[in-house]
Design a binder for these strands. Structure first.
Lengths: 164, 164
DNA sequence: CTTGGAATGTCAACAACACTGACTTACCCT
DNA sequence: AGGGTAAGTCAGTGTTGTTGACATTCCAAG
């Protein structure tokens, strides 16, 4: 039905898709489990982790930019940022060109927590990657990219390219 | 690219792992976006979706079994089940062998909602699978399985095998 | 120079979803 | 009869998300 060649389309059956859905569900639980354990002892939650992750990833990012990446309301992000700033993990600097904007940076303490969190998360990722092998990892990335909403794929690609 | 000792290990660099982490984050957002939109108009949330999904997947499952799969407290699950039962989407039957147990089933209305939700989710999954191709899908599944906690991998495998 | 709009921040109220802890009811099994 | 299991419930709490309303600051266009 698709392109007519003899390749089996069995991987597109409802049963295969359902298994993929369940795999995403269970895997995401594992994906967040280690950082969640660390954060549980700190009054922080997943939202704080996400903010810290992306501020570390793109230092000096504006609040608005972070808002678009995280996909939450400014009120929700602001609550998180306020605690991170008052706890001395994040620094907010008024923009030079546009003084309305606030540019966000991790402090040394913030970077220390970021390292702790991402070390834990990367350890699981590394072990999964190693167990699955490079070809599987390439396929993993390919499917995930195809699953994103287009705007999110844009944010993702921009981050990816700025990192190399 | 491949070094003298066989496979390149470049896919295990911190930068590659970080990209994988961000891919998981953005893809999971897409993964839940379509069902979330449907549920938003119905007083229901993601927790209801998960309960409906797994009751449909394993009809007659007990509350305890569902608890283990979902990894939440019974109070949290009970709140969700109570609304689903009183709204006539789920039916709870006292066990025949063990009358302490409650076996859970979807009603016709429950099945209708399940179909609506999983059609939406499968559509995105199917489009991602089709775009990525069968080999990528195999790798995707392999990495996700390796990322799960062992107990979750057990639940996942049991469900997977009961479905074929 | 005034004014409109953008970016940010703040306050208040609320809902969904998770948690802990304590307790009850019903039941199985030894 | 008693111990342990399955389920349900009540009360309290915390994180994260939402709307809506409003203030401040500032750039830029008229």
């Amino acid at each position: 039905m698709a392109d007519g060649h003899g390749e089996s389309l069995l991987f597109l059956t409802d049963e295969q898709l359902r298994q993929g859905i369940e795999a995403m569900f269970f895997a995401y639980r594992g994906f967040t489990a280690d950082p969640d354990r660390i954060l549980a002892n700190l009054t922080y939650g997943r939202a704080h982790h996400r903010a810290i992750h992306f501020i570390n990833r793109a230092p000096g990012t504006t609040v608005n930019n972070l808002l678009n990446i995280l996909g939450v309301t400014k009120q929700s992000l602001n609550r998180v940022l306020r605690t991170l700033i008052s706890d001395g993990l994040v620094q907010s600097r008024v923009g030079r060109n546009d003084k309305r904007e606030r540019h966000l940076f991790l402090t040394d303490a913030g970077r220390a927590l970021e390292t702790q969190l991402s070390d834990a998360q990367r350890a699981r990722m590394r072990s999964a990657y190693r167990a699955a092998g490079p070809e599987a990892v390439a396929g993993f990335r390919k499917v995930l990219e195809a699953m994103m909403d287009p705007e999110m794929r844009g944010s993702y690609t921009r981050l990816k390219e700025s990192g190399t």
